[in-house]
Design a protein around this nucleic acid. Structure first.
Lengths: 235, 235
DNA sequence: GGCTCGGTATGACGCCCGTCATACGCGGCG
DNA sequence: CGCCGCGTATGACGGGCGTCATACCGAGCC
């Protein structure tokens, strides 16, 4: 069993984009230090406020980054396979600023803080990757803030799905498909509203054929129609 | 006159925290490459979407970072003396994700992109400073997002001034003083609401003695009273 | 089977707050 | 001086959406 895990780790290290540029020896060293962690849906990777001791890389599944607010939670980001989680908290030696929750079955590659620093020290390209990741995060956060501002809930939800479509949509017979299982609750937390409101919007759009909820996916028959719904509703 | 400017630059480089750890020779080199820029209130340092070619460091005055949204602008951050502006856009070679506007008379130390990279290359500690800055930005953004969510406008404004007080408040005879000139418009943009609403809240608080607007400053007679106003208003 | 529980759906109610309108003091400028 | 623009202030109105309540459905479990 141990052998099996060790093998999984080696394969993972070879496949992860962050480790792509490393020499086979370094890859081996990392594999020796890393460990695996499997979680099921709803499990918590780390809690807001905990000290950040390990770098986590997603091998499989999706992780949502949640910040608790006094008026409910906000989903800040959703990470998928290949992406590092909470790299910045570990790097800066600060407590996690938000919580991480598994959205389905998730496999993680865990690297202790010390080894992570080692890596940074010896491979500047690795550090550059971290900065790039941070920048991306920053951009998405500022955009989210600007979108949150003032806009009606309907507009925000439409924009959410339009950007999702842009990032992971694929052409399909009946329209654009977004292969992503999101509950109405999660949609609400992503755009900053309540479950009831998100349900109302989503089910009306379902009736009107604007945005169809399927098993573990969404369907956008017409991107233009949805974009129009984002702009106004007075017709 | 040129001499005068050169002298100002040298002094500035010596004083800026980011250059603190550098050798005198490096400081001299930077001073030789850097230039000064003086702006008056309302001037634009850079516009959203422009290519980021120069790193700017604030010597004097305040700069607000603004993101244009379809429903109005949002103030993402306010930088003051000693802080770098838009370090991340320059670093990543991406266009400015938001605009920078001078809030009063502002003096900037400008460093061309190339020289900035040079600096990063040769001084890892400098790079670490940038990452730290990025992290701080990230934290404040996520907190802003969580606070924006759902809360009533009154709560958001109260929280804004409480955090401002925490960061730059000083004890005073009549209470806590925040030495910061902010128009109602700017308050509105910081918490994501309209001018009218921010005016309503602020003038009522002025009448009730909760938060007094003065010439270029605000006064908080009782931090507890304000914190209570943030929680609820049903009494 | 019946129970609970979580996700989805829909209606009623109320109020915060965005929108529009008006007014006033002040500084700058021709 | 009169005019304009800007920041501040206050009122009226209406609607979006948060809150509370109820109901349906499927999954898991005893």
């Amino acid at each position: 069993m141990i052998d099996h895990r060790a093998e999984r780790i080696q394969i993972a290290v070879r496949l992860l984009p962050v480790f792509r540029g490393l020499s086979p020896e370094d890859q081996g060293r990392i594999a020796a230090m890393a460990s695996l962690r499997d979680l099921s849906k709803g499990d918590v990777l780390f809690e807001e406020g905990e000290p950040a001791e390990t770098l986590m890389l997603i091998l499989e599944g999706r992780v949502k980054i949640v910040r608790h607010g006094s008026a409910g939670d906000v989903i800040l980001e959703i990470f998928t396979a290949g992406e590092p989680v909470a790299a910045l908290a570990v790097y800066n030696g600060i407590p996690y600023p938000s919580s991480g929750v598994a959205m389905d079955r998730v496999s993680l590659l865990c690297l202790p803080k010390r080894d992570y620093f080692d890596l940074l020290e010896r491979h500047p390209s690795f550090a550059r990757g971290i900065i790039r990741e941070l920048t991306r995060l920053n951009l998405s956060l500022t955009r989210k803030l600007a979108e949150m501002r003032g806009q009606r809930v309907e507009t925000r939800i439409a924009q959410l799905f339009l950007t999702l479509a842009e990032r992971m949509g694929r052409e399909h017979a009946e329209g654009l498909e977004i292969p992503l299982g999101l509950s109405r609750q999660e949609i609400a937390e992503m755009v900053g509203t309540t479950v009831e409101t998100s349900i109302r919007v989503m089910s009306r759009w379902g009736r009107e054929g604007l945005l169809i909820t399927g098993e573990g996916r969404f369907l956008i028959p017409s991107r233009e129609k949805l974009a129009e719904a984002a702009r106004a509703e007075d017709a």
